[in-house]
């Protein structure tokens, strides 16, 4: 069983934070197939959040095929997050390190690097959406 938390200042919608925490737990192996997620009532009462927010997160996870609701019992993990992409992490990290070194040589400080990355990342996401 995992325990959820909420970062009120992150600006990320609460239901997305819940989804993210389940995905993260799946990726780290903290949640495995057949594990039960906390009940909607427990999450709502524990975090003092709207039960509909929890339902929305669980529905979204269900839609992604990661969990399934068993009526009257609860919500259980049914999927795993593929480890296939893990193999790619090493080379990608190396590329990123090379790029970071290049950015520092060009005179960017940490803040500028972060801004440039986020800006490019968001622009890319926006293009994908459009």
């Amino acid at each position: 069983m995992i325990e959820f938390h909420l970062d009120a200042r992150s600006g990320v919608a609460p239901y997305l934070q819940l989804i993210h925490q389940v995905r993260q737990a799946l990726r780290l192996g903290l949640l495995r197939v057949d594990d039960q997620l906390p009940t909607v009532k427990d999450v709502a009462a524990g975090l003092a959040i709207n039960p509909n927010t929890v339902l929305k997160a669980y529905r979204e996870l269900e839609y992604e095929g990661l969990v399934a609701a068993r009526p009257g019992v609860g919500t259980f993990v049914t999927g795993t997050l593929s480890d296939a992409s893990l193999a790619a992490h090493g080379p990608l990290r190396q590329d990123l390190q090379r790029w970071l070194a290049k950015a520092r040589r060009a005179g960017l400080d940490d803040e500028s690097i972060e801004a440039l990355f986020l800006n490019t990342f968001r622009a890319g996401t926006a293009q994908d959406v459009a």
Binding site: L6, A8, P14, V40, K41, A44, A45, G46, L47, A48, I49, N50, P51, V54
Partner: peptide, 27 residues
């Protein structure tokens, strides 16, 4: 927490007034 527990357990509707937007954001 008590209020949300009641809402989740009994599927009641709620109307509440508050100044505290951070609280409203959660519930």
């Amino acid at each position: 927490q008590s209020l949300m527990e009641f809402v989740a357990g009994h599927e009641a509707s709620v109307v509440l007034s508050s100044h505290l937007v951070a609280d409203l954001e959660r519930v």
